[in-house]
């Protein structure tokens, strides 16, 4: 039963991701991206990664995709220009990609892919201890992977600062009052309301 579910959602993911790059309207494209992520989240659920599925929804659908949508709407791009030359490059690209894919599938089918016998953090054992997915993730994230976790936090901070610095522009004559000027006010020059 789960397998059929998996096939179904796989199909939807592939199709919708195709549409992401195919549709001419960027807004539609972003919407398809959201749909793709939504279905990917369901696949994650099938893989019993509940926390990740929810994170994917919150982070991508809730934040990143909306950001995309925001930008797309803000920029206001004409459709006709965007699709120019698409058909010219598409066959060649498809050819290359299909060679690439066929080669990969050949490898997957061959017996050259070797998997390790048992994992490092056994999910079953953890589950047997009475922990759910989120709790066990938290347990390892805050202990074994603590430093990486911190670094990724810094990475996000960096990205935030970077985005602000990049997008920030010096506007002449801003309407807000400079805090320095505000502090330097003295008694004589201040405007009095009688």
């Amino acid at each position: 039963m789960t397998l059929y579910f998996f096939y179904f959602f796989t199909f939807i993911v592939i199709l919708s991701s195709f549409l992401v790059i195919f549709v001419s309207n960027p807004v539609h494209s972003v919407l398809f991206l959201i749909f793709t992520f939504f279905n990917a989240a369901i696949i994650f659920l099938i893989f019993k990664a509940e926390f990740l599925a929810m994170t994917l929804l919150i982070v991508y659908v809730g934040a990143v995709a909306v950001l995309f949508l925001f930008v797309v709407m803000m920029l206001n791009i004409s459709e006709s220009v965007i699709k120019e030359g698409f058909l010219r490059y598409f066959p060649f690209g498809l050819l290359l990609i299909s060679i690439f894919l066929i080669e990969l599938f050949m490898i997957f089918n061959s017996d050259k892919v070797i998997f390790p016998e048992n994992g490092f953090l056994k999910i079953n054992e953890i589950m047997n201890l009475g922990m759910d997915n989120t709790k066990s993730l938290g347990l390892f994230l805050y202990t074994d992977y603590f430093i990486i976790f911190q670094i990724s936090g810094f990475l996000l901070l960096l990205a935030m600062i970077g985005a602000i610095v990049l997008a920030h522009s010096d506007i002449k004559n801003p309407k807000s009052i400079s805090p320095i000027n505000q502090k330097n006010v003295d008694k004589k020059t201040i405007i009095k309301l009688n």
Binding site: F47, K48, A49, F51, L52, T55, L56, V59, Y60, A63, V64, L67, F68, V71, F115, P116, N118, G119, F120, L121, K122, I123, N124, I126, N133, S136, L137, F140, L141, Y145, I148, S152, L155, L156, L158, A159, M160, G162, A163, I164, L166, A167
Partner: peptide, 28 residues
């Protein structure tokens, strides 16, 4: 899921972080 190992999920969490950062910077 296949190998019954939690570290895959943890790493995918980190990938999410990178993706979010990348999207923010890229859009900026």
């Amino acid at each position: 899921y296949l190998l019954d190992d939690l570290s895959g999920q943890i790493f995918s969490l980190f990938i999410l972080v990178v993706a979010a950062a990348e999207a923010a910077i890229g859009l900026a």
